[in-house]
Simulated scan of single mutants.
Amino acid sequence: MKDIDFERTEYVTNRELENDEGEETGKLQMFSYDNEVFHYKLTCPYCQHTFEGEEELGSRPWWIECPECTRSTNVYRIKDKKKREIKDRAPDPSDV
């Protein structure tokens, strides 16, 4: 993956990816300078194939397909996922 000029980035992520069983078996590094063209290095959470690329990604959700196993990985917004987890969480019994 090419060197990143963090001063210019509009989007950067570096995270673990889960397979269908919830195990963190993949990894994604992604950045963009303009929120249009995204550069990434991905280790597929399903087959562990590692590949790099760059794509113009439109509106979310973003999906990147593994060229080896052809399974797609969803690149979600971390903030969005956290909000959903909080929203989906049942009320704490001590709050009642």
Rank of each mutant, 00 (worst) to 15 (best):
E16V: 00
K2Y: 05
E23A: 11
L28C: 08
I4S: 03
K2P: 12
G22E: 02
K27D: 09
G58C: 00
W63T: 09
D34L: 04
N74M: 13
P93S: 11
E21H: 07
E65V: 14
Y76D: 15
N74E: 15
E65A: 12
I64D: 04
F6V: 02
S94W: 10
T73V: 15
E52V: 07
D92T: 03
K79T: 13
P67L: 07
D5L: 02
T70K: 14
P93F: 06
H49Y: 15
Q29H: 06
M30A: 08
G53Y: 03
E23L: 07
R84E: 15
L42Y: 02
L28S: 01
M30D: 01
D88L: 13
C69F: 11
E21Q: 14
K82I: 15
I4K: 08
A90N: 11
E52I: 04
Q29G: 00
E55S: 13
T9Y: 01
R84D: 13
W63Q: 11
E36C: 01
T13H: 01
E56I: 06
T43I: 07
I78F: 07
V12W: 12
G26P: 04
H49A: 07
T43C: 05
I64P: 11
H39K: 07
R77G: 14
Y76I: 05
T73F: 08
E21P: 00
E23Q: 12
F51S: 07
Y76P: 01
V75P: 06
D80F: 11
H49V: 03
E10H: 06
T70E: 13
F31P: 00
N74A: 12
T43L: 06
V75R: 08
G53N: 04
Y46Q: 05
E68P: 00
Y33K: 01
R60W: 03
F38E: 05
V96P: 02
E16N: 09
E65N: 08
H39E: 08
C66L: 05
T9M: 02
P93Y: 10
N74V: 13
H49Q: 07
R71C: 09
D3N: 10
F6G: 00
R8M: 07
T70P: 02
C66A: 08
I86P: 01
F51N: 04
E65L: 03
N19L: 04
E85K: 14
Y76K: 09
R89Y: 03
W62T: 04
V75S: 06
E85M: 15
P91K: 13
F6A: 03
M30R: 07
P91A: 12
